[in-house]
């Protein structure tokens, strides 16, 4: 099998994830899209690990999974906080940085 099969598959998932991040308004959906991006990256890591016949690819994928777990935890906490303060998780309304 070609290495590219996996890489392009992962690129497609990645771009769909980016689209989701850019387009979705709901905070939880944005987080889901980020998960998609992270998974796409993981496929890359594992594919390259297999390509080189090393376990390191898997190891890093595991690390990414762990970091993703942490990220989701904090991210959802933030979304909850936004919800509690604004009664809405529409990320377009969170624009306090507006200059």
């Amino acid at each position: 099998m070609y290495l590219n099969q996996f890489l392009i598959f992962s690129a497609i998932l990645f771009c769909i994830g980016v689209y989701g991040v850019l387009v979705r308004k709901n905070g939880v959906l944005v987080l889901m899209s980020i998960e998609l991006i992270l998974n796409a990256v993981n496929i890359n890591l594992v594919a390259f690990g297999t390509f080189h016949g090393q376990a390191a690819g898997q190891v890093f994928a595991l690390f990414v999974i762990a970091v993703a777990a942490a990220e989701v935890g904090v991210g959802l906490a933030i979304v909850l906080l936004i919800y509690r303060n604004r009664r809405s998780i529409d990320v377009s309304e969170a624009d306090l940085l507006k200059g």
């Binding site: 099998m1 070609y2 290495l3 990645f14 390509f51």
Partner: peptide
């Protein structure tokens, strides 16, 4: 943005790993 990123990534992937197979 998605299509642009995919174009860039796809192009470079094909360019770089076009015919490489996983052993």
């Amino acid at each position: 943005v998605g299509i642009l990123m995919f174009a860039v990534m796809g192009y470079s992937l094909i360019e770089e790993f076009g015919d490489q197979k996983i052993p």
